[in-house]
Structures are given as C-alpha cells and as structure tokens.
C-alpha cells in the first residue's frame, strides 16, 4: 500500500470519483494530501463572486468538503493544500517533490476538440510526472 498519496482535486464530480478510486490504494497508515490548484482565472472568478477574503477561502474549502468527508468516514487522515499556479504544472511539481508515491486525479473526459481548445490536465500530468499516476475516468 502507498504511504503518501497526492489527490489532485478541483471539487468536481470527476475529482470525487478519483477520491473514491484512491480508497483502493490505501490502508490505515496512508496519508492523503488533497491538492487544489487556484489558477489566476479562478481568482478572478472568486473575487467577483464573493466579497471578503475569508469567504473565498471558506468557499474553496466547501468545494472539497465532500471529498474530505469521504476520507473521514473511511478513517483516512487527509490534509488540503491550496496552491496558486497553472493546474498541470503545479500538480506535476508537487508530484515530483519526492513527498508522495502516487498521484490520483480525475479526467474530465473531454472529446478531441475540447481537448484541443481547453487542454487536458490529466494528460499532461501523466506525461511529466515521475511517480505513478492513476487517472480515473
């Protein structure tokens, strides 16, 4: 079983499925780190849609609440890391930091055209990560 797992999550249904899948790779000793990457574009959106800075942090935590709850009910210790930057680069550098043995993330399931326009985070992480990557479809 893996000791330290990095779960890249944005709070979407896909990332919740990834969290569920990660339960297959853990035992009671495993530490899960949920990494949530805040892109500058996300900052723009959050600043426009919630006023005082505390409520932005609160909102971001709330998005991940379902995942945290999942781990808590399974008695797995987990912590959240908020990082600023572009999603794929930030997840890759966290994965390659040496603190984790496995990175788990969801795939948005884009078609070819969407992938061309929006870019696939999971694809890029899979390509550049030095540790095993689990992409949950």
């Amino acid at each position: 079983m893996y000791k330290n797992i990095l779960l890249a999550a944005d709070g979407s249904d896909n990332s919740f499925r990834a969290a569920e899948e990660s339960l297959n790779f853990i035992n009671g000793e495993t530490e899960i780190t949920i990494i949530n990457v805040i892109d500058a574009e996300t900052s723009k959106n959050d600043v426009l849609h919630s006023s005082p800075s505390e409520s932005i942090i609160h909102k971001r935590k709330e998005k991940l609440a379902k995942i945290v709850e999942l781990y808590e009910t399974n008695k797995i210790s987990c912590n959240i890391r908020f990082e600023h930057g572009t999603p794929n680069e930030t997840v890759v550098s966290a994965a390659n930091s040496g603190s984790y043995q496995l990175v788990v993330l969801g795939s948005r399931g884009l078609n070819t055209l969407q992938e061309m326009v929006m870019g696939s985070v999971s694809h890029k992480v899979a390509k550049r990560s030095n540790i095993p990557v689990v992409i949950v479809k």
Binding site: I38, A40, S43, K44
Partner: peptide, 12 residues
C-alpha cells in the same frame, strides 16, 4: 482596485 484584489488573491 478590482484587479489588485484579483492579483492579491492569485498570489496570496
């Protein structure tokens, strides 16, 4: 000032 708030947030 709106932009400043966005940059504040994005750079923490």
């Amino acid at each position: 000032l709106l932009t400043a708030r966005i940059v504040d947030n994005a750079t923490d």
